[in-house]
């Protein structure tokens, strides 16, 4: 059973790996005699114009900016929400859940208008603004659940010792919230790394494409003659950072999802 599940999850990925390591001729017909394995696909992708790692760094840059900005905005918001008693707290939670469920693609047109009128299109850092907004609902929900789990007496003790809000956050609350912060950051980063509709419409300059768009472009160059070897190499390269992230942080991701589920 376990093997079956693994095969189901990893099979398509392993096939990509295999494809990426084969000579183009070997993809079409079994090659007799000569060695079908090659790294040429990787060389091709990495020496393209712009080289493939450019897309990786683009996506990484947007992801990091989004993650930082999201946490920066979500932490105070979650704190305030958690510490506010009142009728509209429930309303705010429902609104956040609704926003977290909102299909992104329905927003792109209006956002594109804004971006064009403010001259933000083709700017990677500007891209992190809508990404931050898209990630905020989930981030606020997760962090609020995290704040709710901290014993209230800890913050009381810090207040009695004269720590202001900023000091309490820095010295007491955030260090204790580190696991929640980590899992929130990872989920936000993943969402940003994978976003498609907005990046597709905001970014047109070739050297500024994010990874999903770049890969879709390789695929979209022609329906019939997709350079599958090169493409597979690109997917493998684009998946590696995520593979590492998921392997290293699976506990944080799972606990983040768990908390979101329980408190959401």
């Amino acid at each position: 059973m376990r093997l079956l599940v693994l095969l189901w999850s990893l099979g398509p990925l392993l096939w990509q790996l295999r494809t990426s390591l084969l000579r183009p001729e070997a993809l079409v017909a079994p090659m007799a005699g000569s060695n079908p394995w090659t790294l040429a696909n990787y060389q091709l992708v990495l020496s393209g114009d712009p080289p493939f790692w450019r897309y990786l760094t683009n996506s990484g840059l947007v992801g990091l900016a989004t993650t930082l900005l999201t946490l920066l905005l979500a932490v105070p918001c979650a704190y305030a929400l958690q510490h506010h008693r009142g009728a509209w707290r429930w309303g705010a939670s429902v609104a956040l859940v609704a926003a977290a469920m909102f299909p992104t693609v329905l927003l792109f047109l209006a956002l594109l208008e804004i971006a064009r009128s403010l001259g933000l299109a083709n700017s990677l850092l500007a891209l992190s603004l809508p990404y931050t907004a898209l990630s905020l609902p989930l981030a606020v929900l997760l962090l609020r659940a995290g704040f709710a789990d901290l014993p209230g007496e800890l913050e009381d003790a810090a207040r009695l010792e004269g720590l202001g809000l900023g000091q309490r956050l820095r010295h007491v609350l955030l260090p204790l919230l580190a696991p929640t912060l980590a899992s929130t950051a990872i989920l936000v980063f993943l969402a940003s790394w994978n976003e498609y509709a907005i990046a597709l419409t905001w970014i047109s300059r070739n050297d500024l494409l994010t990874l999903p768009i770049a890969i879709a472009r390789i695929g979209g160059s022609s329906v019939f003659t997709i350079p599958y070897g090169a493409f597979a190499a690109a997917t493998v390269l684009g998946s590696l950072p995520l593979l590492l992230l998921v392997l290293l942080a699976q506990r944080a991701i799972v606990s983040g999802l768990t908390q979101g589920a329980i408190k959401g």
């Binding site: 014993p151 800890l154 009381d156 003790a157 810090a158 207040r159 009695l160 004269g162 260090p175």
Partner: peptide, 20 residues
């Protein structure tokens, strides 16, 4: 007055020691 300005010391039921 804010709690920090009252020079009040309090021992909590849970002790409220900073675990980190």
């Amino acid at each position: 007055r804010e709690p920090g300005e009252r020079q009040v010391a309090m021992v909590f039921q849970s002790y409220a020691l900073y675990p980190h």
